[in-house]
Deep mutational scan, measured.
Amino acid sequence: TTLHFDLDGKKLQYTGVSEEIARLVEELKRRGVDLKEIVRILEELLK
């Protein structure tokens, strides 16, 4: 799965993300978590 974000005018793309992580990101968005925080979490998970 590939995730795309537009953060402060920067286009971020994460490829090869598992379905689980993609679902987690969608859930965080639904809960109103700040996009910067979501990206920070995502980068930690993908290390």
Rank of each mutant, 00 (worst) to 15 (best):
T1C: 04
T1W: 09
T1E: 12
T1P: 06
T2Y: 04
T2W: 03
T2A: 06
T2P: 03
T2L: 05
T2G: 04
T2V: 09
T2S: 08
L3Q: 02
L3D: 02
L3R: 00
L3H: 02
L3E: 02
L3K: 00
L3F: 04
H4T: 15
H4Q: 12
H4Y: 12
H4I: 14
H4V: 14
H4W: 14
H4R: 05
H4A: 08
F5N: 01
F5H: 01
F5K: 00
F5L: 06
F5M: 04
F5R: 00
F5W: 02
D6K: 02
D6F: 09
D6G: 01
D6Q: 05
L7V: 13
L7K: 01
L7W: 06
L7M: 10
L7T: 03
D8S: 03
D8H: 04
D8W: 02
D8Y: 03
D8V: 01
G9C: 02
G9R: 00
G9M: 02
G9S: 04
G9I: 02
G9W: 02
G9V: 01
G9D: 09
K10M: 14
K10Q: 10
K10I: 15
K10E: 13
K10R: 08
K10N: 11
K10D: 12
K11A: 11
K11H: 13
K11Q: 15
K11Y: 10
K11R: 08
K11T: 13
L12Y: 12
L12P: 01
L12D: 02
L12N: 02
L12I: 13
L12E: 04
L12K: 04
Q13P: 02
Q13W: 09
Q13R: 05
Q13T: 14
Y14S: 00
Y14I: 05
Y14Q: 00
Y14K: 00
Y14R: 00
Y14N: 00
T15E: 15
T15P: 10
T15Q: 13
G16S: 06
G16W: 04
G16Y: 07
G16Q: 11
G16C: 04
G16R: 04
V17S: 01
V17F: 02
V17Q: 02
V17P: 01
V17K: 01
V17N: 01
V17Y: 01
S18A: 07
S18M: 04
S18G: 07
S18N: 13
S18Y: 02
S18W: 02
S18F: 02
E19W: 12
E19Y: 10
E19I: 13
E19G: 12
E19S: 08
E19D: 15
E19P: 10
E20C: 06
E20A: 12
E20G: 08
E20V: 06
E20T: 10
E20R: 08
E20I: 05
I21Y: 09
I21E: 04
I21G: 06
I21A: 09
I21V: 15
A22P: 02
A22D: 04
A22R: 10
R23A: 15
R23C: 12
R23W: 10
R23Y: 13
R23S: 15
L24T: 15
L24H: 15
L24G: 08
L24V: 11
L24C: 07
L24P: 01
V25K: 00
V25Y: 05
V25Q: 01
V25G: 01
V25W: 01
E26P: 01
E26V: 08
E26R: 06
E26H: 09
E26G: 09
E26Q: 10
E26M: 10
E26L: 14
E27T: 10
E27H: 07
E27S: 08
E27C: 05
E27M: 06
E27F: 06
E27V: 08
L28R: 02
L28P: 00
L28V: 03
L28H: 08
L28N: 03
L28Y: 10
L28C: 02
L28A: 06
L28K: 04
K29D: 12
K29H: 14
K29P: 02
K29G: 11
K29V: 15
R30V: 15
R30P: 00
R30K: 13
R30T: 14
R30A: 14
R30F: 13
R30H: 13
R30Y: 15
R30I: 13
R31D: 15
R31E: 15
R31H: 10
R31L: 14
R31V: 14
R31A: 11
R31F: 10
R31C: 05
R31P: 02
R31T: 11
R31G: 15
G32Q: 11
G32N: 12
G32D: 12
G32L: 08
G32R: 00
G32F: 07
V33K: 08
V33G: 04
V33E: 15
V33S: 05
V33L: 11
V33Q: 10
V33P: 02
D34C: 06
D34N: 09
D34A: 12
D34L: 08
D34S: 11
D34M: 09
D34Y: 07
D34E: 13
L35N: 10
L35Q: 10
L35I: 15
L35G: 09
L35F: 06
K36E: 11
K36Q: 13
K36F: 14
K36I: 12
K36V: 12
E37R: 06
E37C: 04
E37T: 07
E37Q: 09
E37S: 09
E37P: 01
I38A: 02
I38G: 00
I38K: 00
I38V: 11
I38D: 00
I38M: 04
I38H: 00
V39T: 04
V39C: 03
V39K: 03
V39Q: 03
V39F: 03
V39E: 01
V39Y: 02
R40Q: 13
R40T: 14
R40M: 14
I41L: 10
I41R: 09
I41T: 12
I41N: 07
I41M: 09
L42A: 03
L42D: 00
L42F: 04
L42H: 00
L42Q: 00
E43R: 03
E43T: 06
E43I: 05
E43A: 05
E43S: 06
E43P: 02
E43H: 05
E43V: 05
E44C: 12
E44Q: 09
E44S: 12
E44K: 07
E44A: 10
E44W: 07
E44N: 10
L45M: 14
L45W: 08
L45I: 09
L45K: 11
L45G: 05
L45F: 06
L45P: 01
L46A: 03
L46S: 04
L46D: 03
L46I: 10
L46V: 06
L46K: 03
K47E: 09
K47N: 11
K47F: 11
K47H: 12
K47A: 13
K47L: 12
